[in-house]
Structures are given as C-alpha cells and as structure tokens.
Design a binder for these strands. Sequence first.
DNA 1: AATATAAATGAATGTTCGTTCATTTATTAT
DNA 2: ATAATAAATGAACGAACATTCATTTATATT
Lengths: 196, 196
Amino acid sequence: MRYRDEHKELLVKERAIEMIVREGLDGFSMQKLAKEAGVSPATLYIYYKDKEDLLIQLGYEEATRLTTTILKNFDPNMKFEEGMRVQWRNRADYWLENPVRASFLEQLRHSPLRTRVFEALDTEFVASMGRFLHNAIDNKEIKPLTKEAFWSVAYAPLYNLIRFHTEGISLAGEPFQFSEEIMWQTFALVMKALKA
Amino acid sequence: MRYRDEHKELLVKERAIEMIVREGLDGFSMQKLAKEAGVSPATLYIYYKDKEDLLIQLGYEEATRLTTTILKNFDPNMKFEEGMRVQWRNRADYWLENPVRASFLEQLRHSPLRTRVFEALDTEFVASMGRFLHNAIDNKEIKPLTKEAFWSVAYAPLYNLIRFHTEGISLAGEPFQFSEEIMWQTFALVMKALKA
DNA sequence: AATATAAATGAATGTTCGTTCATTTATTAT
DNA sequence: ATAATAAATGAACGAACATTCATTTATATT
C-alpha cells in the first residue's frame, strides 16, 4: 500500500496556522488551504474528518506543545521563588520562540472552539499549579490567596509584556523591545506583591 | 422622503454582536444577520458599505463606549492610589455590565482587524494614562517604571480576574464568582507591587 | 392631492464554501 | 510481475456566501 506523505501532512498544518494568523478564523477555508499547501481539497479529508476537526486537532496539538514547554524543569514541590522563575522563563520562551503558533492559539482561545480545544489540558495543568500554590502558602512563602487571585497576579503581567512586544505596540515613541532585563524587573514587582 | 428606521438600525447592531459572540467571526454572515434582524440583506448595504465596514464601524463604536466608560471620573492629575481605584472600578463595571459587548471587542482584538478598530483610540487613551504614570513617578508615589511594566502590572491582573468570572472558568470545584472583596484584595496586591 | 426622495425590499448575480466520489497513483506483500 | 491497499487526486455537488439592482414603500414638502 501507499504510505502517507508526512512532509505533505506537516506542510498542511503549517500553512493552516499561517493562514489563520494572517487572515483570521473567518478568512480560513479548506479550498484556500489546499491550494496554499499544493494539495487536493480531498486530501484534507483523508487527514481530517471535516473543517472543525482540523481546527480542533491542530489546536489540541499546539496546546499540548505549549503545556509541555511551560512545565519543563518545573515541579510543584519546588520552592516558590524558584518555581515562579522557571514558569516565567518557560512561558517567555514559548511566546518569543513561537509567535505565530502562539497567535494561532490565542485566536482559538477567543473563539467558540475554546472549550473543546483547551478544557482537558487546562484542567490537568491547573491541578499541578494548584499544588504548587498550596505548598507555597503552607510554607508561608506567600500570603494566603485564592487560586484566582494568584493566577491573575502571577502570570498576567508577563503575558501583557509579551503581548506588547509581539503585537509591536508602541506606548512611547518606538515599538516596545522585550528584554530579559525588563522581564525580571517585572518579575520582581510580582514577587513583591505575592510574598508573605 | 422616508426616514431611516433607527429601531431597525439598532436591532441590526445588537444582533450582529450577538451572532459574533455566539458563533465567532467565521460564523458571522450578512445573510444570516439580515434574517436574524428581520431585514433584507440589501438594507445592510444601506447602513454599511460592505461586511468589513460593518465590523469596523461596530467595533469602533463599541471601543469608544469602552474608552468613555474607563475614563469616567478619572483625571490624570489624581493622586496615584485614587486614580488607580477609579480605573479598577470603571474597568470592572464595563466588563461586568457588558459581558457580550466586551466579548465582541475581545474577538476583534484578536483578529486581523485589530489595528483598524483600536489603533487611534488606543493611542489617545495611552497618552492620558502616560501622564498619570509620569505624575505618580515624579511625586514618588510609585517607583520608577517603564510604561510597559506599569501597564502590565497595573491592569492585567484585573482583566484576568474578570475573565475567570465571565468565561466561567473553574480552578477549584465550582465556577469562580467575582466579588468586590476579591477584586479589592487583588488591587491591594497590585498596589503593594507598585508602591515606592 | 401630487411630487420628490431616500429607505427598504425580494430576487437574482456570480463566487466561494465544505464536502464527496469515481479514478489514478505509489508502495508493500505476494 | 501481479495483486492488494491506502494515499492522493481533479472534477463536481448543492449550499451558503457577499453584493447588486430594479422596484416598492413611507414620509416631508409643495
């Protein structure tokens, strides 16, 4: 029998993500994707059941990569400051090294497919971080906080910083340049807010 | 001559926002909108040049409402803590009272139309907040910060908190219930991070 | 009552959409 | 070589798409 051309399969994925980032979820179509990937439309239906299936599979795959990256070198039993530092490092790495993929995920996050793509992964992920938070409070490394307050203060500032960089937003004259320095300065502010 | 039916015009806007929030930007179409608003498709083209024009006009209008709400009772010359408190109050009010409209704006923010909808408003808005920050640093109410670090620490946590509430995200057993209490607790954390 | 005018319409345009299918192609196992 | 099999295809389907247009409707002015 004939084997599936993996190069072709990868190309389809790559072009799909590109197109969605470039033209939005509404600018994305199966026929355009087929043309851009140099493939027959029918081929897409060998790889995927339908358009929605394609989006969900692509989203799930990329969300998994994100989760894996963020948890690298991280252990919920780490000391609080060290764990936080690893998390900031990992999250920054993912966003800075995969801006297109990150933007694709962001579009899915704000679309009605959100639940089906992220729910399972998020749940598992949040459980791990929950233990991390619980330990830190028990050891009196940080003041008692609800999970929601912790998550909101702990990472949202970093994401915002990265967004300024990635979207080329300019608050002063020239577009903001992300740097290790400003990242760790902001990290210090966040640690100050959280510490017991 | 015949006058434009303003009730009809408003209904079109409302249904458009509803549909985009419900089905995403890719689930939105002019023909469906016409049907849901009880209007001929041709009527939409009296109100708007084309589909893109509709989205941009709707987005701009809603972004203006957001900006206006956020700046209510705010003055860049306020004392830092008071100004921050007003900003948190206003931002929370907008998101909690207009969840559907806010979600509509969020979809546009993460779409390729972003620049055309928000750029002008954002620029003006950021200028006002820039003065506020500048004053606070001059008066030594907060430590010296870049604009990007300030924005990232000052409001991102609030938005995150509201997102948990609006999207019904559950970190513990039951879905998170936003409350004044947790809002001001989080506010206190942020103020602690920023204060000189 | 008649006229002028812009709003509003339903039907139609050509285009693009998601998806299917009969057929061909490439590869493994015989 | 041949048979078997899944990959891959191009052409085609009806449905839904954005948009247009000739016509009708409602209202303000004469």
